[in-house]
Design a protein around this nucleic acid. Structure first.
Lengths: 343, 343
DNA sequence: CTGAAAGCGCTTACAG
DNA sequence: CTGAAAGCGCTTACAG
C-alpha cells in the first residue's frame, strides 16, 4: 500500500492546459471520432507535456467495466502450466486485458483466497485450473461467481461452467495400446492422486485399453503418488518391490515420469531398456531428457488459448450456454518405449 | 471490458441492512479496533448474508493507495524466470499484494507497452527484468517512473534504481577455472547477445579467467547467439566448423547449453566425453538432462525474493537511497565436465 | 463540440 | 460510535 510520490496529473489539468473541457479530453483518451483533428492534437500535446497517465482504474470504476483477468494455476514451475499461461497471454493481450496471476500449489486455502482477492480487484473474468481437492465451500463459491469464468485442465463436479481440457481417457488408451503393440503385457499405472477427476479419467483409459486387449487389471500395478517428480521417484521404488514387476509403466504426467525414470536409475534399472516408460503432457523437457520420453501431447498452450477465447466470448456475448472444449491428445513415440519386447 | 451481471452489493447496502452508518461499515472492513465486538458481528453477518465483496479498486482510488505490483519478465518458458517469479510471489503475497504479470519475450515494444499498461492500472510498484536491447526512449521512461521500482537480472545504463542480480563475471570465472583445472586449454564461449550487460559481464569473467591462466583469447572461440535453445544449436554447429575446435565450451546460459549439447549430438560429438560443456543458471532441468550439466547457480528464486523485499522497503520507507544486491554465484559440477583431459 | 452536474464505491475528516 | 459532506479521477447524459 503506498502513496504516489508525485500527484498524478488528472484529465482536468490536461483539459485546462489545452483550453478544452474535461468532457472533450475524456472523449480523446477514449479515441472518440467526434473530436476535430485540431483539438485532438492540441490535447495530446498537452498530455505529453504534462506527463499524463490515464487512470484506467478510475475509468473502470465509473463505467463499471474491467480490463483485468485473473488466471489461477497450480504450479508455475510445471512446464505444462507455463505453456498454458503463454497461450492465455497470447490471446488476452490482443484484447487489451492485463492478467493477475495466482498460483495455488494445489492448496485449497490458497485457491479460495486467490479467488477472493481477484474478485475484490474487480477482475472481468477468471480462468481457473482448480486444485485437486477443491472443497465443497470453494465449489459453492465458484458456482456463484458473478463474473465470467472458465475452468481449465480439471473439471469440478456440480460446477456448470465453460471447460477446456483434453480427453485424458483417450490419451491413456493411445499410450497403453502403444505399449501393448510393443509386446508388453504387464503395464503399471504410476502416480497421480486418486481423488482427482484427471486421475479417474486416466484410470478409465487404462482400464479400457487393457480390457480391449483381454487383460484384466492387476491392482498391484496401480500405484498413486503426488503429481510431482518426487512422487514419481517413490512410485518407481514401490513398483520394483512387487513380486512380479511390470515390463512397462504408464505415468500420470511427464513430471511423474521424470521422477520414475530417476527412481528406476537409482535402483539400477535402465528406463527404455529394462522397463518401458510413457508419460503424459509432452512438456518441453520430454524431448531432451535421457532417454527421451514417449508421451502423450496434451497441448497445454492450446488449452490456454481456448480458455482465453471462451472467456472473451462470455464477456462479450453474455449468453448463458456453456461450452466444453475437449482436445484430442496425440501419442509421441520416443526412446523410452522404442525397444520391442520379444514375447 | 464487461458489465457485471448482477450489481455489486455496496457498503451502503450492508450498512442499511445492519442498521449502522456507512462510516462504521467502512471501519469494519478495514479491521479498525474502534468498533464494538457486537456491531462488528452484526455487520459481518449482514455482509455474509448479502454476499458483499469488498471493492478494493474503489477503496484504493479514494485513499490513493495500491495493492498491486507489476512484474515484467522476459520469458515465462525459461525456468530461470519462473523460479524468479516464485520467489517474487512468495514475498509479495505475505504483504497482501496481487501481481500483474507481463512477459516481454525480449521485445522492446512489448516492454514499453507493458510498462504503460501497468502504470495505467496504478500499480504500487514494478519489478522489471529489462529486455536486452532496451531503447533510449524506454530507459527515459523508466528513469522517470513515479512508482517504486527495482530492476532484476539485468542492469540498465544510466538508470539509478534498486538492482538485484548476480556477479556474472565471478560466476564465469569459477566456471572457466574449473575447466582449466580439468586440463582444458581451448575453451569457447558460446551464446548470448553481445549488446547486453549480462553478456558483457560474462565476457569479462571469461577474459579474466583466461588471462590469469596466461591464455590469450582466440576471437574465433567467442560465438554469440540468441539466448535460446535454438541459438545454442547453431552456436554448436558453428564452433565445430572452426579449424581447431575447442575441447570445452562455456555457455551463456543453461538454456543455450541444452541447445549446444543437442547441436553437438547432432554432429556425432558426445558432450561430456568429447567436449566438456558448462552452463549458467542451474535451472532444474540441468540436473536431469543427459549428461547432467555442470553449471553455475545464479539463485533465481533468491533474486526474486530480494527484488520483492527491496520493492516493499521502497514502498514503505520512501527513502531515496538505492540498494544494489549482487548475489555470489556458485559452481555446481556434474557429468558434462567431469572427464579430466590428459594434457 | 462544450459545460455543468451527477455518480461509480469507497475513505476521510469532522462535529456530535 | 454516528451522520452528513466532500472527494479520489474518471464517464455519462443532457441541454446548448
Amino acid at each position: 500500500m503506498k502513496q504516489s510520490k508525485r500527484k498524478r496529473v488528472t484529465l482536468q489539468q490536461v483539459a485546462e492546459h489545452a483550453g478544452v473541457s474535461r468532457a472533450t479530453a475524456s472523449l480523446i483518451v477514449r479515441n472518440s471520432p467526434s473530436v476535430s483533428e485540431k483539438t485532438r492534437k492540441k490535447v495530446l500535446a498537452s498530455m505529453k507535456e504534462l506527463g499524463y497517465v490515464y487512470d484506467r482504474i478510475a475509468a473502470n470504476l465509473r463505467s463499471q467495466t474491467s480490463s483485468t483477468i485473473g488466471v489461477i494455476i497450480t504450479d508455475i514451475s510445471n512446464t505444462f502450466f507455463t505453456e498454458l499461461l503463454i497461450g492465455v497471454h497470447e490471446e488476452l493481450e490482443k484484447d487489451g486485458y492485463t492478467v493477475f496471476l495466482g498460483t495455488t500449489f494445489d492448496s485449497d486455502n490458497r485457491q479460495d483466497q486467490l479467488l477472493s482477492t481477484m474478485l475484490e480487484h474487480r477482475v472481468g473474468g477468471i480462468i481457473l485450473c482448480p486444485v485437486a481437492g477443491t472443497s465443497e465451500d470453494t465449489i459453492r463459491k465458484i458456482q456463484h461467481l458473478d463474473v465470467p469464468s472458465v475452468l481449465a485442465v480439471r473439471e469440478l463436479p456440480e460446477v456448470e461452467s465453460d471447460y477446456v481440457g483434453v480427453d485424458y481417457s483417450l490419451g491413456v488408451q493411445k499410450a497403453v495400446q502403444h505399449l501393448l503393440q510393443q509386446g508388453h503385457k504387464r503395464i503399471a499405472f504410476l502416480g497421480g492422486t486418486t481423488g482427482s477427476t484427471t486421475w479417474k479419467e486416466r484410470m478409465e483409459g487404462y482400464r479400457l485399453a487393457l480390457e480391449n486387449a483381454g487383460i484384466s487389471i492387476d491392482e498391484e500395478l496401480v500405484i498413486p503418488s503426488g503429481p510431482t517428480r518426487s512422487g514419481g521417484v517413490e512410485a518407481a521404488h514401490q513398483v520394483l518391490n512387487i513380486s512380479e514387476p511390470p515390463t512397462a509403466v504408464f505415468c500420470f504426467s511427464d513430471l511423474v515420469a521424470f521422477g520414475v525414470m530417476q527412481g528406476l536409475k537409482e535402483k539400477g534399472i535402465v528406463p527404455g531398456e529394462d522397463i518401458a516408460v510413457v508419460g503424459f503432457d509432452n512438456v518441453m523437457e520430454s524431448s531432451v531428457c535421457h532417454p527421451t520420453l514417449t508421451t502423450v501431447s496434451s497441448f497445454a498452450r492450446q488449452i490456454g488459448k481456448d480458455a482465453a477465447r471462451c472467456l472473451h466470448n462470455q464477456i462479450v456475448d453474455k449468453k448463458e450456454h456453456h461450452h466444453r472444449i475437449i482436445l484430442t491428445p496425440q501419442l509421441v513415440v520416443r526412446e523410452s518405449s522404442s525397444k520391442k519386447r520379444s514375447s
